[in-house]
C-alpha cells in the first residue's frame, strides 16, 4: 500500500501501559484496532478514564505504544509529525502571549514569516469571533474564549489530521452549536481526517461519519457505528430527525453498559 491510498490513521493492536508511581504497570488502552479513512470524521465515545485521551496521544506521536503499531498515512509514527493538529482537553494556551501571538505561535514555530503568520492568525481569530480580543492575555478571557483561541491556534496550521479531545466541553450550549457547525464547514473545506473525542453522544452523532464506542478501561474498541445521516448537516436540525434518535438509542445501549461497568468499578474502589 502506498501513502496515497493508505488510510489516514491506522492503529493495529496498539496497547499502552503507564508506570504508576508505585512502580506497577497500568494499562490504559489494550489491543486497539482502529482505522480512520482519508477525510473521514470519526467520533470516539467511552466512559470516563477509559483511555480516549491516551489513544489520541498515541496517534499524535507524543507517546509511543507499548505494543502494536500506529500508522499515519501508511507510515509508522515516529515522533511528532507536522501534519497533526491537536486540541487538548486541558487549557494549553501560552499565558504570557497575547491572543494574537498565541494563534501566531504555530506558523512562527514552523518558520512562516511574521507578517504572513499575523495575517493568517487574524483570519482565524475572525472566524472564531475573537478579533476584538487579539491584544488580551489569556487570563483576561473566559474559559470558552480560551478554548476558541486554542482552536484557532490549531486550525491556523492547516492540519491534515485533526485530533480533538473534548474541544467543546468547556463552551456554553449556544457557542457549542455554532462551533460544531463551524467545525463541519471547515472540515468539509480542508478534507482533514478527524478523530473527535467527546462525552456528548448527541454531539458525536451530529458530527461524525463513524462513532467508535470504547469499552471500560483499559479501552479497546467495542463497536463501530456508521452514521448514515446526509451531509451537509446543521447540528441543531439533525438532532430532531427520527433517524438520529434511532441511532442514538442504538449507540446508547452499547455505551451505557460500559458506563455502568466503570461506575460500579469506581464504587468498589471507593468502598
Amino acid at each position: 500500500m502506498n501513502s496515497q491510498t493508505s488510510p489516514a490513521i491506522e492503529l493495529r493492536g496498539a496497547s499502552k501501559a503507564f508506570r504508576t508511581p508505585s512502580g506497577a504497570l497500568h494499562t490504559a488502552v489494550r489491543d486497539l484496532d482502529l482505522t480512520v479513512g482519508r477525510g473521514e470524521f470519526v467520533a470516539v465515545v467511552g466512559p470516563t478514564g477509559c483511555g480516549k485521551s491516551t489513544t489520541l496521544t498515541l496517534v499524535s506521536g507524543l507517546e509511543e505504544p507499548t505494543e502494536g503499531e500506529v500508522l499515519v498515512a501508511g507510515e509508522p509514527v515516529r515522533g511528532i509529525g507536522d501534519k497533526v493538529g491537536f486540541v487538548f482537553q486541558q487549557d494549553a494556551v501560552f499565558p504570557w502571549r497575547t491572543v494574537l501571538s498565541n494563534v501566531m505561535a504555530g506558523p512562527r514555530f514552523r518558520g512562516v514569516p511574521k507578517a504572513e503568520a499575523k495575517e493568517r492568525a487574524r483570519e482565524w481569530l475572525a472566524r472564531v469571533g475573537l478579533s476584538s480580543f487579539e491584544d488580551r492575555y489569556p487570563h483576561q478571557l473566559s474559559g470558552g474564549m480560551r478554548k476558541r483561541v486554542a482552536l484557532a491556534a490549531t486550525f491556523v496550521n492547516d492540519p491534515e489530521i485533526l485530533l480533538m479531545d473534548e474541544p467543546f466541553s468547556a463552551l456554553d450550549v449556544q457557542t457549542r452549536a455554532l462551533m460544531s457547525d463551524e467545525l463541519l464547514e471547515l472540515w468539509a473545506g480542508t478534507g482533514a481526517s478527524v478523530v473527535f473525542v467527546t462525552h456528548d453522544l448527541e454531539e458525536s452523532i451530529a458530527l461524525a461519519d463513524k462513532v467508535v464506542v470504547m469499552t471500560a478501561g483499559p479501552a479497546t474498541v467495542k463497536e463501530v457505528f456508521e452514521i448514515d445521516l446526509p451531509r451537509p448537516r446543521k447540528v441543531e436540525q439533525v438532532r430532531m430527525e427520527p433517524r438520529f434518535i434511532e441511532i442514538y438509542r442504538e449507540i446508547w445501549s452499547s455505551l451505557g453498559e460500559e458506563v455502568r461497568i466503570t461506575r460500579e468499578r469506581g464504587a468498589v474502589n471507593v468502598a
Binding site: T57, D82, F86, A92, A105
Partner: peptide, 23 residues
C-alpha cells in the same frame, strides 16, 4: 501540557526551551 502543545504546533527543542520553558 504547554510543552506538548508547543511540540504539536511545530516547536523544535530549542524553541521549546526559549519560548516555553524560559518564559
Amino acid at each position: 501540557n504547554l510543552v506538548a502543545n508547543s511540540r504539536i504546533l511545530g516547536a523544535s527543542n530549542r524553541q521549546v526551551t526559549f519560548q516555553v520553558v524560559i518564559p
